[in-house]
C-alpha cells in the first residue's frame, strides 16, 4: 500500500496536470453518454417534473466539472498519467466495441444462449486471454509492464463464472474463476492454485448450498446430474 509521491512536472509544458485533463475528459465522456441516453425524455416544468429534468440537470453539472478539471489541468501542476494503468480498460472497451459491431452484422438469434454480440465478445476475450497466457508462460517482461495481466485475468475469471454458474453449476464455475483469476498474480504457482481452487470451491458449495441452502446449482451435467 505505497503511495506514489506526486512528481511535479515542468511548469512550461502546455498540459501541466495530465491526470486532471484525463479525468475531465472522462467526465465529459460520461456526460455525453448520458446526454444521448436522455435525449428522448420529457423535461416537464418545475411544478410537474418530467422524467428527463433531473438527469439533464445532473448531466450538465457533470459536464461543468469535466470542463473545470480540463481547465485546471492547464493552470496547475499535477500527477502524470501512466498508460499501463488504463491499458486493460481500453483493451476491454475496444473488444466490446468490436463485438458490438460484429454483432450487428451477424444474423439475429442466440448462439449457445447468448446474444450474438455477447458471443463474439466472449470469443475475442478468450483469444486475448490465451495470448496473454502464452506470454505468461514465456515470462514476458513486456506483460508485467503493460498492466494488462491483472485486470484481464480477473475480469475474465468473473465472466467465466457468470457464463457457467447457471448452466454447469458451482463445482465448475468456482474452480474456473479461481484458476483464471489466479493467473492475474505475477507470482502465481500453478500446482498450488489448482489445489486451492478445489478446496475453496468445496468449501463454498458446502457453505452456500448445504448450510445456507441458497438456490445455487452445485453441478449440472445435462440429462445426467442435477445437484
Amino acid at each position: 500500500m505505497t503511495h506514489r509521491p506526486p512528481r511535479p512536472r515542468s511548469s512550461r509544458a502546455a498540459v501541466r496536470d495530465p491526470q486532471n485533463l484525463a479525468a475531465g475528459l472522462v467526465l465529459l465522456g460520461f456526460a455525453g453518454l448520458a446526454w444521448i441516453a436522455s435525449a428522448g425524455l420529457e423535461m416537464g416544468t418545475l411544478f410537474v417534473m418530467g422524467p428527463g429534468l433531473v438527469p439533464r440537470v445532473l448531466t450538465l453539472c457533470l459536464a461543468a466539472f469535466g470542463l473545470f478539471l480540463c481547465a485546471s489541468a492547464v493552470v496547475q501542476d499535477g500527477m502524470p498519467v501512466r498508460l499501463a494503468d488504463f491499458s486493460a480498460v481500453l483493451l476491454i472497451a475496444a473488444l466490446i466495441a468490436a463485438a458490438a459491431a460484429a454483432g450487428s452484422l451477424l444474423p439475429g438469434g442466440a448462439v449457445i444462449g447468448l446474444p450474438p454480440a455477447a458471443f463474439v465478445f466472449c470469443l475475442l476475450y478468450l483469444v486475448v486471454m490465451v495470448a496473454l497466457a502464452v506470454l505468461c508462460v514465456r515470462r514476458s517482461t513486456w506483460l508485467d509492464r503493460s498492466g494488462l495481466r491483472g485486470p484481464v485475468f480477473v475480469i475474465g475469471g468473473v465472466i467465466a463464472f457468470a457464463l457457467t454458474v447457471r448452466s454447469a453449476g458451482l463445482l465448475v464455475s468456482g474452480p474456473l474463476l479461481a484458476l483464471i483469476s489466479g493467473a492475474a498474480a505475477p507470482d502465481t504457482r500453478f500446482g498450488e492454485l489448482v489445489v486451492f481452487a478445489i478446496a475453496v470451491t468445496l468449501l463454498s458449495v458446502g457453505l452456500f448450498k448445504y448450510v445456507l441452502q441458497l438456490p445455487v446449482p452445485a453441478l449440472i451435467i445435462p440429462g445426467i446430474v442435477y445437484l
Binding site: 489466479g182 498474480a185 502465481t188 492454485l193 486451492f196
Partner: peptide, 19 residues
Amino acid sequence: PYRLLFPTILVFSCIGIYS
C-alpha cells in the same frame, strides 16, 4: 499470500452477488 487470497475473495464475492 495475496496470490491465494484474492481468488478466494473473488469466489465468495461472485457467489454473493449471484445469489
